[in-house]
């Protein structure tokens, strides 16, 4: 496995510096680092300043409703060896709070603004957590898994008078044409999926 040499060197350096980090070389040019939430800031700082991972490609959030956790993913790229690090951490889903990284990267501000709006995570230190995409949003943050989209659309929009709910296309079409849904198709109506 000579071709993963650089990736392994990077992984080794990270595990030497951050003993509790769980480092895996996923494939060529991808290193995944799982960290405690309080180690993310030191790690990002170390990666940016000492290991030359200067490009912040994106910050993502995944809602793990069952575990009551949010997973935050920071992707960093090193322009010299083109290796990408995905730094992951879990934070609490109740009253989620995290540290802002706007002082490291300008573009972190936008990602944090969006995550505050879509997941309700409060990034301490970000001075511009203002409205971004949504306007006057009062309900629960819409990208959370427990946000009921069907209920939202039923409460917000209404069918035009004289029309019935035709969201389930397969059922509607078969009803209109007076045919039965074939046995195989029944499993795949929108409601069952």
């Amino acid at each position: 496995m000579e071709e993963l040499k650089i990736e392994k060197e990077i992984a080794e350096e990270i595990s030497k510096t951050f003993h509790s980090a769980e480092v895996t070389v996923k494939r060529e040019k991808r290193v995944v680092v799982k960290l405690r939430d309080d180690l993310i800031t030191p790690f990002l700082s170390y990666a940016k300043n000492n290991m030359n991972f200067i490009h912040l490609a994106h910050i993502s959030c995944v809602d793990w409703l069952e575990d009551n956790k949010f997973e935050l993913i920071y992707s960093l790229l090193n322009y010299d060896n083109k290796v990408m690090i995905l730094a992951k951490t879990y934070i609490d889903r109740e009253n989620p709070e995290f540290v802002s990284h706007t002082n490291y990267w300008d573009q972190a501000e936008t990602y944090e603004r969006e995550m505050r709006e879509m997941y309700g995570i409060n990034f301490k230190g970000n001075k511009r957590l203002t409205e971004f995409i949504l306007e006057d949003w009062q309900g629960i943050p819409p990208m959370r898994r427990d946000f009921d989209t069907v209920k939202f659309s039923q409460d917000t929009f209404y069918n035009r008078p004289g029309r019935e709910n035709a969201q389930d296309v397969r059922t509607t079409v078969t009803k209109k044409s007076g045919e039965e849904i074939p046995e195989i198709g029944k499993d795949y109506t929108v409601r069952n999926l």
Binding site: A57, H58, S75, D106, Q107, E109, T110, Y111
Partner: peptide, 11 residues
């Protein structure tokens, strides 16, 4: 992650 996300806002 679109390039415009960074180009269109912070940059």
């Amino acid at each position: 992650r679109g390039p415009a996300y960074v180009h269109g806002v912070s940059l």
